[in-house]
Design a binder for these strands. Structure first.
Lengths: 221, 221
DNA sequence: CAGGATCCTTAGCGATACTG
DNA sequence: CAGTATCGCTAAGGATCCTG
């Protein structure tokens, strides 16, 4: 049963919160910023939300025009399935959530064990990259939690897109937490590679350039 | 008893929401954007929050370094009292909340009867003003809910500050809802003045210039 | 009177189990 | 896989009462 309580305040901020202020709602939007996702993918990315609450939030966001359900793209193996994606209205939340995320980086760490979704790390990677005209370009295939992303670093700017790259300098398979730690400390790559938490195929220096595009930035995602 | 539940997610967005994501927290911050306020003023501006929840939110925000309690300034009549004000960290939320408010303007109206605080209207007034190099300047004294503000319009930009102006072209006394309706439709000023919802002393054209600095903008606050 | 604290009720949340 | 159903818990809502 969807939540229907309102702040009953005409202010724009309160009205925004009537739509995306319920618990978990903004994190659902966050998960959809980079690509549409299925229900089970959202569950995996947000392991601390129970399924009924997630279903409620999705329904409310859909009713409020922030999220849309569409048939899953044919390319994915599950045919009869659906995905949730942001509407244009929902996409307008992107700069707001990114700014909120930058503010939150200065907030205390959550109590362990903390979740960390692929989307979170990739958003952080995009936002924390330091523009640098001298930085050489690199395109990496990145496999995270079984999903493939195309990550392009150019002039120190990083662009992330869902799906297989058409061409890539290297392919990196790892998990979000390891990737996050590699962004904090790229020199730990050898260790991560040694114990199997990260695996590279192709040009390792391309991966290194990518990892270092955010270094000497405030840590943590 | 303060709320202490966490999303347990290392993402910056989730960590921000651990701090300001509880119900009413962002609206408390909104109320403090323009000036420090006392507990009773916050209760008046946020009539739909119960006093225990408001006290909880203030304590949590204080513990998290967003809000600070300080002795009330001597100029106000209540001596032994305290005010809540934003810390530097809290002030950094301003652009985020303003952006959220712009997004929320497109959201559905809340069910009546809806609250509308002085701060909400003034924030809207500041943000919705249309820069216009040809617009003549005006300084108005504005009395809203018994509090006095200094509102300066210059080149179509509007600046709001708490407290009495040193000099003003006009003084307007009204209430937030009437002011909001006047911003939507400045021509209704005569009616509002006639039935006592608005009263001007001084240069009425200065008030008119102020009101019209936001007109032909999307309506509602 | 400002600034809460206390008490009670309700509704949203969290966890688990279950179904098409 | 994609949700529903159920249930105990806890935060929110509302009123009242206390304290300097």
């Amino acid at each position: 049963m969807p939540t229907s309580r309102s702040y009953r305040d005409s202010c724009g901020i309160a009205r925004a919160l009537d739509v995306i202020g319920e618990r978990w709602a903004m994190l659902v939007v966050r998960e959809l910023l980079l690509t549409p996702q299925r229900f089970s993918e959202l569950r995996h990315s947000l392991p601390n939300v129970s399924s009924n609450v997630l279903a409620d939030r999705l329904r409310e966001l859909e009713n409020n025009g922030v999220v849309r359900r569409t048939p899953a793209p044919a390319q994915t193996q599950a045919q009869g399935s659906q995905v949730y994606e942001l509407t244009e209205r929902g996409r307008q939340l992107e700069p707001i959530l990114l700014a909120l995320g930058e503010w939150g980086v200065e907030a205390p760490e959550p109590p362990a064990p903390a979740a960390l979704s692929a989307t979170s790390v990739l958003i952080f990677l995009q936002g924390a990259a330091r523009p640098d005209p001298a930085a050489p370009a690199a395109t990496c295939r990145l496999e995270l939690d079984g999903r493939v992303w195309t990550v392009r670093s150019e002039s120190g700017r990083v662009q992330v897109a869902a799906g297989e790259p058409t061409t890539a300098d290297a392919s990196l398979r790892t998990d979000p937490k390891t990737l996050s730690s590699l962004l904090v400390d790229p020199s730990s790559f050898a260790a991560a590679s040694a114990d199997g938490r990260a695996a590279v195929v192709g040009d390792r220096s391309a991966v290194d350039r990518l990892l270092r595009s955010v270094t000497s930035t405030t840590a943590h995602n």
